[in-house]
Design a protein around this nucleic acid. Structure first.
Ligand SMILES: [Mn+2]
Ligand SMILES: [Mn+2]
Ligand SMILES: [Zn+2]
Ligand SMILES: [Zn+2]
Lengths: 139, 139
DNA sequence: CGCCTTATTGCAAATCTTTGCAACAAGAAA
DNA sequence: TTTCTTGTTGCAAAGATTTGCAATAAGGCG
């Protein structure tokens, strides 16, 4: 888990307040080691702070995403949440073996450059999940 | 709307059956001119076939997506549905003006090639929604 | 055209997610 | 530390999506 003071500072920088609920949700995401669903996060939180309401977990997740402390990321319909770390990255999700491979964000710079050149569009690619077949599953 | 016989054939090719419910959902997506939400589709259907149940619309949409007759596509949290057309494409969604610009799928070939070369990963990019800023909104 | 098999539907109940509102409490200011 | 403002929370109710199950009907076969 990152430093509480630093997280509180970043929450207040958004005009928000640091609360026990926001703190424990951050702990949950950290403890669940990235890529946790809203329900998994709620279960983790409820196990140690039963008073925290489900609706609050949803609202906290939305807030943390907007505050850019947490990154949401959709894998075929399911929303997962991950702490925004030092290095931005994306994911290669193999539909064969289910393996999830993180790749540095600059691996997609080639696309960003092309879109900018061809369409004048400044793409903001954050924490994508790209599905396909990994090297092994391609035989 | 595409030819009913052809659609029915493709449904049966999946081991499925063509029903009035599936037919009218396809009509709805077509009439709504692409990019319709589950609720918009349900409203359209309910207006002319009130007996069709909401749960059925959800199940039909899932079936059509798996049968590859319809492509789902997420724009910040909301799932939209579109008929799979002749030419595969993606979308550039501007977060400034909200404009949605379709681009041919091969615009992303540069990325597919790079991922294959760098990671041995065969990406399957289908009907993506890429957010960012369009030329005008960048000033 | 009937008869079967079984995929599909409607319904109701279960889940998941959002929202309105009054009570609460974080944190800035005194 | 006490006060005050207003962002947050819990709760309950609404809305969205999924699921179990018995009844229905698509379509292959005679
Ligand atoms: Mn990640
Ligand atoms: Mn499209
Ligand atoms: Zn694999
Ligand atoms: Zn724009």
């Amino acid at each position: 888990m990152d430093d509480y003071q630093e997280l509180a500072r970043r929450v207040r920088a958004q005009g928000g307040r640091m609360t026990p609920q926001r703190q424990i949700v951050l702990e949950a995401i950290s403890a669940l080691d990235g890529h946790a669903s809203a329900n998994e996060i709620y279960e983790w939180v409820a196990a140690r702070a039963p008073a925290v309401n489900r609706a609050t977990v949803y609202r906290v997740l939305r807030f943390l995403c907007e505050a850019n402390l947490v990154a949401p990321f959709a894998t075929d319909g399911v929303m997962l949440y991950e702490l925004v770390g030092a290095r931005p990255h994306h994911h290669l999700v193999c539909r064969g073996c289910g393996h999830v491979e993180p790749i540095p964000a600059q691996a997609l710079d080639v696309l960003v450059t092309a879109l900018c050149r061809e369409h004048g569009f400044q793409a903001e690619l954050r924490h994508l999940a790209i599905t396909g077949l990994c090297r092994e599953c391609r035989q």
